[in-house]
Design a protein around this nucleic acid. Structure first.
Length: 568
DNA sequence: GCCGTTTTCGGCCCGACTGTTTTCAGTCG
C-alpha cells in the first residue's frame, strides 16, 4: 500500500474548522454552510474520502464540488488545506472556542475579539466578571451572567451522548404508559430516538390530547420523573431516574402529522425537504404546508399525508438523514426495510462456558421465547482450549435433543491475534458449525491486514464487530472498510452488525456500504445474559438505518439456507 | 461553495426563543 491516507474524520475536522474560521471572519454564510455540509458528508462516508478525491470522484458525492475536492487533495499532499493554514494565522485559536459556548455564535465571538480585544477564554471570563462586556451595544448584565455560566459548565467533563440502548427502552415504556392513560389520543417518540440514531441528547415525545394541560401535568407526575425542568400547558421537560432528559410536546390533533414529521427530523432531512418544496410553491413548517400562491394552509393528521402532498412516499424514520431517501421516495423506490419478525435466529451468543453470565440452557430457552428457530453458541476461543470445545459439544447435543426442533449450532468467537493469526487450530475450527473472528486487542496494529488475513481462512464464516469501537469509550480501529468489503466478497465471508449498545458495529454507514457491495450482513445480539438477546433489535434498527432489506440480512434465512451461502 | 424537470446564474427552510430593544439580530434545533 502507498502512504497512509488521512482518515475521513481528519478531513471532516479540517473542513469544519475552516468553516468556523470563515464564519468568524465574516465570510458569506452559504460558503460556510457548504463547508459544514461537506464535512458531514466526509464524516459519514464509508469509503476513504481522500482516495475518492485522488481519483477525482469525491465530487460525485452530494455537497462536494470541484473546489472542496481540490482541498481534500491538498490534505493528502501537504497535510493541511492551504486556506486553513492561512486562516489559522489570522484568528487566535481560542476565539474558535468562544463559538462553542452555548448561546454564543460567530457574530458575538467576532465582536468580543475585535471590539474588546479578547483572544482567550481566560480573558473572556475576566472581562465578564469585571462587567466590561456591557460596554458593547446589545450586551447587558444578563449576557455577562450567561457567558460566565457557559464558561463554568465548559470546565466540566466532556459531554457524552447517552446510548440508544439506554434511552429507547425507557422512551418506549413512557410512550406505552401515556398511551394507556385516559388523556392521550395519539402519542409517539420523535427526534433522533425515533430515527434510532446510535446516541441522543434528549428523548422527544409528541402527543395529542383533548386536555393538553392535564396531560402535561400527568406527565410530570409520573414515577420515573425526578426533576421537572419546565412545565407549561403544552410542553414539559423532565429528568428521569436514569438521568435522561425527556421533552413532551402536546399538539393539536389536526396537525399531528405535520408536527411528528417536523420533530422527527433530521434537521438535514427537513431542510432538504423544504428547499425542494419551495421550488414547488409550497412552504413547509411544523404546523402546516402553505400553498404560497393561495395562502391555503394544509394540516394533516398523519405523516403519510404530509409526505404524499409533497410528492413522496412515506419515508421510514430510520432513513431520514438526507442521504438519498428523498430522491428515492420521490421515485417510489425506497427499499422495503428488514423487519424484526423476519429474523429467524441469533448467531452470536455467549454462555458461562466463557464470559457469559448464564448457562447455555438458559440462553437457549431465552432464544426460543423470542421465537427463534436456531442460535449459535459462540463462546470466546481463549476459554475453549484443551478439550473444552468437545465438552461443550456434548452439552449442545443434549440440549438439541431436549429442545428440538429448535437448534443450537456449535460455534465459536475466535480471536484475531496481533499478527493476524487465529488462536484456535484449523482442526478445532473445522469442528465448528459457525465461526466468527473478531479483533479484541492491539487495535492500532494493522487492523485491516489482520481482518483480511482472517477472512482468508476457509473456516472463518463471519467477521465480528469490525472496528471494535466502544461508543463514548474507545474510538474505532482504523479499518479500511472498502478493502474489507472487497475481501469479504472475494472470500465469501459475512460481516456482523453487533447489537451491543456501545458497539453497534458495523456502524450505519458501513453497513449500508456492505449492502451496496453485496456482502450479507449478520445482525446479532452478542448477548452475555438472557435479557441481552434483545440487543439484536438494536442491531436491526441500525440495519434499517443502513437501508438493508430482508435479502441483505443473513439471519432472515433458515440455517440450511445460510449453510448454502457459506464458503465451505 | 454547491446546484439545476424554471436556472450554468442566482438562488440557497422555518419558526421559537432570548436579550436587548422600541422593531430586531443572533442563536438554536
Amino acid at each position: 500500500m502507498a502512504q497512509a491516507l488521512p482518515r475521513n474524520s481528519e478531513v471532516a475536522d479540517q473542513l469544519e474548522l475552516l468553516a468556523d474560521l470563515l464564519e468568524l471572519t465574516g465570510e458569506a454564510s452559504f460558503r460556510v454552510i457548504a463547508y459544514r455540509r461537506a464535512a458531514q458528508r466526509a464524516r459519514e462516508s464509508a469509503g476513504s474520502i481522500a482516495q475518492l478525491a485522488l481519483d477525482g470522484r469525491a465530487k460525485e458525492l452530494p455537497g462536494i464540488g470541484k473546489t472542496i475536492e481540490e482541498k481534500i487533495v491538498q490534505i493528502v499532499d501537504t497535510g493541511e488545506i492551504a486556506a486553513l493554514t492561512k486562516r489559522k494565522a489570522e484568528v487566535p485559536p481560542e476565539v474558535v472556542e468562544f463559538m462553542r459556548l452555548p448561546g454564543l455564535g460567530p457574530k458575538t465571538a467576532a465582536r468580543l475579539w475585535h471590539e474588546l480585544g479578547l483572544t482567550t477564554l481566560a480573558a473572556l471570563k475576566a472581562a465578564a466578571e469585571q462587567q466590561r462586556l456591557r460596554a458593547l451595544p446589545g450586551f447587558g448584565a444578563r449576557s455577562e451572567e450567561r457567558i460566565l455560566k457557559a464558561l463554568a459548565e465548559e470546565r466540566g467533563p466532556a459531554e457524552v451522548r447517552p446510548l440508544l440502548g439506554t434511552g429507547l427502552p425507557v422512551a418506549l415504556a413512557v410512550v406505552e404508559e401515556l398511551r394507556r392513560g385516559p388523556l392521550v389520543d395519539k402519542v409517539s417518540e420523535a427526534g433522533s430516538v425515533r430515527r434510532r440514531r446510535e446516541t441522543f441528547r434528549d428523548l422527544d415525545l409528541i402527543a395529542t390530547s383533548s386536555d393538553p394541560a392535564a396531560l402535561t401535568a400527568h406527565f410530570v407526575s409520573l414515577p420515573f420523573v425526578v426533576e421537572v425542568v419546565a412545565h407549561g400547558d403544552t410542553k414539559a421537560t423532565v429528568i428521569s431516574t436514569d438521568g435522561l432528559r425527556f421533552d413532551l410536546r402536546v399538539v393539536p390533533p389536526e396537525s399531528y402529522g405535520n408536527l411528528l414529521q417536523h420533530f422527527t427530523g433530521s434537521k438535514d432531512h427537513n431542510v432538504a425537504l423544504r428547499e425542494r418544496a419551495v421550488k414547488d410553491g409550497l412552504s413547509v413548517s411544523e404546523y402546516s404546508i402553505t400553498v404560497v400562491e393561495t395562502g391555503e394552509e394544509l394540516r394533516y393528521a398523519t405523516e403519510a399525508e404530509v409526505y404524499a402532498r409533497l410528492g413522496y412516499e412515506w419515508i421510514p424514520p430510520e432513513l431520514r438523514e438526507n442521504t438519498g431517501e428523498l430522491e428515492a421516495a420521490r421515485r417510489n423506490e425506497l427499499p422495503k426495510l428488514v423487519e424484526q419478525r423476519e429474523i429467524r435466529g441469533d448467531l452470536h451468543l455467549h454462555s458461562d462456558w466463557s464470559d457469559g453470565r448464564a448457562t447455555l440452557e438458559e440462553m437457549a430457552l431465552a432464544a426460543t421465547a423470542r421465537g427463534y428457530a436456531y442460535i449459535a453458541i459462540t463462546d470466546h476461543s481463549y476459554r475453549l482450549h484443551e478439550g473444552r470445545l468437545a465438552a461443550q459439544d456434548e452439552e449442545v447435543a443434549r440440549l438439541n435433543e431436549l429442545l428440538a426442533p429448535f437448534q443450537i449450532l456449535r460455534g465459536v468467537e475466535v480471536n484475531i491475534r496481533a499478527d493476524g493469526s487465529l488462536d484456535l487450530t484449523d482442526e478445532e475450527l473445522a469442528s465448528r458449525d459457525w465461526v466468527i473472528a473478531s479483533l479484541h486487542t492491539s487495535f492500532d496494529r494493522s487492523p485491516t491486514e489482520r481482518v483480511l488475513a482472517a477472512m482468508m481462512s476457509p473456516h472463518v464464516d463471519c467477521i465480528g464487530h469490525l472496528t471494535a469501537r466502544k461508543l463514548n469509550k474507545r474510538p474505532p480501529a482504523d479499518v479500511d472498510v472498502e478493502r474489507v468489503l472487497a475481501g469479504a466478497l472475494e472470500t465469501g465471508t459475512f460481516l456482523e452488525l453487533n447489537g451491543q449498545p456501545d458497539r453497534l458495529d458495523l456502524r450505519d454507514a458501513h453497513a449500508r456500504a456492505a449492502g451496496e457491495a453485496g456482502v450479507p450482513v449478520l445482525v446479532s445480539s452478542d448477548a452475555h445474559r438472557p435479557h441481552a438477546l434483545s440487543y439484536l433489535d438494536l442491531a436491526l434498527s441500525q440495519a434499517r438505518r443502513a437501508w438493508l432489506t430482508r435479502a441483505q440480512v443473513l439471519n432472515t434465512r433458515t440455517w440450511p439456507q445460510i449453510q448454502k451461502m457459506m464458503k465451505r
